[in-house]
Design a protein around this nucleic acid. Structure first.
Lengths: 206, 206
DNA sequence: ATTACTAAGACGCGAGTAA
DNA sequence: TTTACTCGCGTCTTAGTAA
């Protein structure tokens, strides 16, 4: 995938002709203006980009080229975006953590919901465990705090869905859980709403 | 975006370690086995890919790299995937064409629905018109046929949605319509179902 | 059967500069 | 101000071949 073409896509050159100088493209992509100029002309000669007066637009050919890469990635990432496992009994500490104002209010602030006191614990299938780190990669975190003299660490939070119900996957930065457990928080009692019980296969999306 | 990394993604190396020889990678990407080997090792040194015995897996770092490109593209393509315009009165010929067994049965075969006799015509906003060619780019076509001595040409068809209702965008290969008109076919009378009338703004997705 | 080294040539890039 | 030419260097690629 050509970086210049991708940059033009980012700039919206697929929908409308946009003004983008070779100097600007070069700066954005960490290359010289001269090289950006050269590479842009290659794209133009290939018919992937067209110059319209002093503006640039990605042509149909350029778009289908980009779209091909996009579909490949979409298929792969949709597969990645599903984490499957079995519903399992928690040890009850999720309930305690969610009763703490620090976490409770943090979730309220970030997602606008007051979490049901208790987490849904999913034991991930063996070859799904690695997805957990991908899930929380770059996820926002609720700050740590002190409560009754004890320090509580940061909590990574990530919006997901479970059978179309919005849920929040949470991961304490310093977790005490075995790593193959995924913890979910929701406004509602998910076991009741979804009529699921321990041992059921579930799949979390996004 | 590195082509070798993208190829591994395509092969599913993001979810599981997959067996992929450098010869195979080279053949797939039109490069020599030697070069594929060299480039693979660069990715491994960068920490984007890891070798597990004789299999390859994309690491967390490689995945977030790919995901960044993916998000860029998704934002851009979601914008592209929406075509907006105003509902307009047709000249009634859509109704005639959809009464012809050739087209009617072609749609029945491809989509499993019997089209409502009549098309919904959308006059695209000026800067949306170009999306029409992108929409039908690579779309399947219903074969042409002869009917009562007259020849009817191929009809491009593409599944879309209009306010969450599945519709079929159609484009006769040799159209008599002005090009800024997008024609939609559906099982139902969309004007009734969606309670829309000429002049209303509508947006077709996908 | 597969990986990866080496040498030589092709190609891409930055710098200088012209238009 | 912006584009794009030339030159020289360095990286990437291929082909041959070893492990």
């Amino acid at each position: 995938m050509d970086d210049v073409l991708l940059y033009l896509l980012k700039r919206g050159a697929a929908s409308n002709a946009v003004r983008a100088t070779t100097g600007e493209i070069g700066a954005a992509l960490n290359m010289t203006q001269q090289n950006a100029s050269r590479r842009l002309n290659i794209l133009i000669n290939q018919g992937a980009v067209s110059r319209i007066q002093d503006k640039l637009a990605i042509s149909r050919k350029g778009i289908s080229e980009l779209r091909e890469t996009y579909s490949t990635m979409r298929v792969a990432f949709e597969e990645i975006g599903k984490i499957t496992g079995k519903l399992t009994d928690g040890v009850g500490d999720g309930k305690y953590y969610l009763s703490l104002p620090g976490y409770k209010n943090g979730i309220k602030e970030k997602f606008g919901i007051l979490p049901y006191p208790g987490t849904l614990n999913i034991r991930l299938d063996g070859n799904e465990v690695w997805k957990k780190s991908a899930l929380f990669d770059g996820a926002p975190a609720i700050s740590g705090f002190k409560h009754e003299g004890r320090a509580f660490g940061e909590l990574f939070v990530k919006a997901c869905t479970l059978r179309s119900i919005p849920v929040i996957a949470v991961l304490p930065k310093r977790t005490h859980h075995p790593y193959e457990i995924l913890e979910l928080v929701s406004e509602k009692n998910l076991r009741k709403v979804l009529k699921i019980k321990s041992g059921d296969d579930v799949s979390v999306t996004l």
